[in-house]
């Protein structure tokens, strides 16, 4: 029974390959998942053709019965094509629902052809329909997995990009650097920030570094530890470290938590910190006229 089943589907695929593709595309349009805004017609068509080719190849080689397993080597090509198509679609902003519907839309052209072929053999028809359903559903699930993986990769990449973006070391003046910290400071980020800062000190031969925490929401024991360690490392390299932007709230919390900043200089605003820093490297700010 399973053997004939495969033969029937193969026959259908071979008889009307292009017809199936057109109808598949048609279903995608009627289901509202054909993203003409993201993919040109010819792109969609060639993607679908490639998928269907890989599908036929799988059907021909694969054991399509109760033992059906998409992980089987017979389906290697199809898996690869599915993964490629999915990745590309994710990156162009296709939603998971659209992606699943896109794959599931293949059922309809296959069903209608099976129906025409086996109209006088209802029990075979049911078998075939069940088989196709199982196959296509498995593709859809696989697509979904790839989709989620790809999304996670994108999220991870964006997180890294954001991390870089959010820790710019700025050269305020000759030999004066500032690092405006924004948001939360977890261990991973603190480490990254510190390494980046120390490297810049070396490159620019900076003598003073202002760690500005105006944009840091809360300072708990952990965050304070990170800041003080960064300050200690800066000092070890031979530069002076000033922590600025300590709000009254943060000052209160730090005292309540019993955080001892030791010899690290702290300032309430980046203004005073900058004035001090310039003085250290031998400059003064002078007012040249009254308003």
């Amino acid at each position: 029974m399973p053997q004939t089943a495969t033969t029937n589907i193969l026959a259908i695929l071979e008889a009307d390959f292009n017809g199936i593709i057109e109808e598949w595309l048609g279903t995608q349009v009627s289901e509202g998942v054909k993203r003409s805004d993201l993919f040109s017609d010819s792109e969609s068509r060639s993607q679908n053709a490639e998928l269907l080719k890989a599908f036929s190849k799988g059907v021909r080689a694969g054991v399509v019965d109760a033992e059906f397993d998409l992980e089987d080597t017979a389906w290697e090509d199809l898996r690869a094509v599915l993964a490629d198509v999915t990745k590309e679609r994710v990156n162009r902003g296709v939603t998971p629902t659209e992606m699943a519907t896109f794959v599931l839309a293949l059922k309809s052209p296959l069903f209608s052809r099976l129906e025409a072929m086996l109209s006088d053999d209802p029990s075979s028809l049911i078998q075939e329909v069940m088989l196709v359903t199982r196959l296509v559903d498995a593709f859809a699930i696989y697509t979904n997995e790839v989709f989620i993986e790809e999304r996670e990769l994108i999220i991870e990449r964006q997180r890294e990009e954001m991390m870089e973006l959010s820790t710019p070391v700025v050269e305020l003046w000759d030999r004066v650097l500032t690092l405006p910290l924004i948001g939360t400071l977890d261990s991973a980020r603190a480490q990254e920030v510190m390494e980046n800062l120390l490297q810049t000190i070396l490159e620019r031969q900076a003598e003073v570094v202002i760690l500005d925490i105006t944009g840091v929401g809360t300072v708990d024991t952990q965050v304070a530890q990170h800041l003080l360690r960064a300050a200690a490392a800066v000092r070890l390299m031979g530069a002076e470290c000033i922590i600025s932007g300590i709000s009254p709230m943060i000052a209160q919390t730090m005292v309540q938590l019993g955080i001892d900043v030791g010899t690290v200089s702290t300032r309430s605003s980046i203004r005073t910190a900058l004035a001090d820093a310039l003085k250290t490297v031998g400059y003064v700010i002078t007012k040249t006229r009254d308003h």
Partner: peptide, 10 residues
């Protein structure tokens, strides 16, 4: 002192 050494000592 090299950056990597400073980080490690801390």
């Amino acid at each position: 002192m090299r950056p990597a050494v400073a980080v490690t000592l801390v």
